[in-house]
Write a protein that binds this DNA or RNA. Structure first.
Lengths: 221, 221
DNA sequence: CAAAACCCTACGGGTTTCCGTAGGATTTTG
DNA sequence: CAAAATCCTACGGAAACCCGTAGGGTTTTG
């Protein structure tokens, strides 16, 4: 089993719960960081001391930082950590249930497990850590659909740009101008119209208003 | 100090954290329920046995109930509990940070404390419980603005009706018809237009699309 | 009870969305 | 390199939105 594990989690009552779970499965060294930067420094120092961590268990959102952090989120922490130490195993432990973000984490960042902070979070976390040790992937069953549903339609950064500006109250003509300002192509009103029409179709929205409601629920914006 | 406290919280790792906090402040009897209905039954039984609870610490959202519950949320649990036992003190312990919902809980349900599940949740929870014992109200400082900001403009159930149907993709004509179906007045297209115009003005939205984006962030829909 | 105030509704016209068509530019392919 | 396919853009008309105005109904007030 893993020898040395780092927890990155801002909420005080959470980290104690995680620590209990890890002790249950006989992990001798469990350290703990409340901020992303702090977590990264601990990982780095451990590497330099030639006593690297085997596993990182990280939350995604770190709120209420009084002192602004370089790394703002769990995603960034995991990405940096893997650059620093490619062999490091990583487990996400989060309340996030938006398919779009889960897909991103599992496919792009290639985490070893995604555990949802829900009813059986403690139990699942133990299982996830054990599977990770055997190089097997784990995801909370209720969220597995996020990875299965290819959703056929891939949402691009361009789409997110359109949606964000729509949500800010710009009309299609203004979005077209904004695209020109940012040197993003295509930028014509007609193109904006066409792309938004596609988005409406793939999300089954009757109009732009509903499209924003739906994509907000999906966590795209 | 309180003698007997009930925790209503679905996530396993959470409730253990809360239990630790309550033991720290010398509360002798701490019980625990994972579902709302279970919590309510425990409260009821304690009353019948003439050993009622002094305090209820409850989460708001209870997800992933395999067996459907009569009480679906912390709000409902607290409302029922207060009907059953008017002297019962109540503390909300939740991740919810939407001003609209916090206002509703503190003003209508008249809870004794609202503690946000954030960095110092454990510490704040202890403080909140002690203040509740002295009949003083507590709310996590970062959320206090939700109660201060009168927001001048009162959002009515009628408004929420309009917003919800807008977010479902109905246009103003269809909403007017829906109002007529539900025998809600006023129901003309013109009235719907007028009210939505007011909503746009009070939320500083340029159009209906942005209005939905904003009110979703506020937690109204 | 009549005037005033208020609310609901109806209507008109300017703007934006919505959708199809079509022409020109760029890329792919044989 | 020419044909085909794909993409970007332009345009026009119907529908929805946005906003002001105005008439008819109800409630309030002196």
């Amino acid at each position: 089993m893993f020898k040395k594990v780092l927890i990155a989690e801002d909420a005080d009552f959470m980290s104690s719960g995680i620590k209990v779970a890890l002790k249950d499965i006989q992990i001798p060294i469990v350290e703990y960081a409340q901020y992303c930067d702090e977590a990264f420094l601990k990982l780095k120092k451990a590497c330099l001391d030639n006593e690297p961590f085997d596993l990182l268990v990280s939350d995604l959102s770190f709120k209420d930082n009084i002192n602004p952090q370089r790394l703002q989120s769990g995603e960034e922490l995991i990405a940096e950590a893997k650059k620093l130490q490619p062999t490091l195993k990583t487990v996400v432990f989060s309340v996030e249930d938006k398919p779009y973000r889960i897909k991103q984490l599992c496919n792009e960042l290639e985490v070893d497990a995604y555990v949802w902070k829900s009813n059986h979070g403690q139990k699942e976390l133990k299982k996830a850590v054990q599977l990770a040790y055997n190089n097997e992937f784990f995801i909370t069953p209720q969220l597995a659909h996020a990875l299965r549903d290819k959703e056929a339609f891939e949402v691009t950064d361009y789409d997110v740009f359109l949606l964000q500006h729509l949500a800010e109250g710009l009309d299609q003509k203004e979005i077209s101008e904004e695209l020109k300002n940012n040197k993003i192509k295509p930028s014509s009103i007609s193109s904006v119209e066409k792309r938004l029409k596609l988005l409406k179709e793939s999300f089954n929205a009757n109009n732009l208003t509903q499209l924003i409601a739906i994509t907000k629920d999906f966590g795209l914006i």
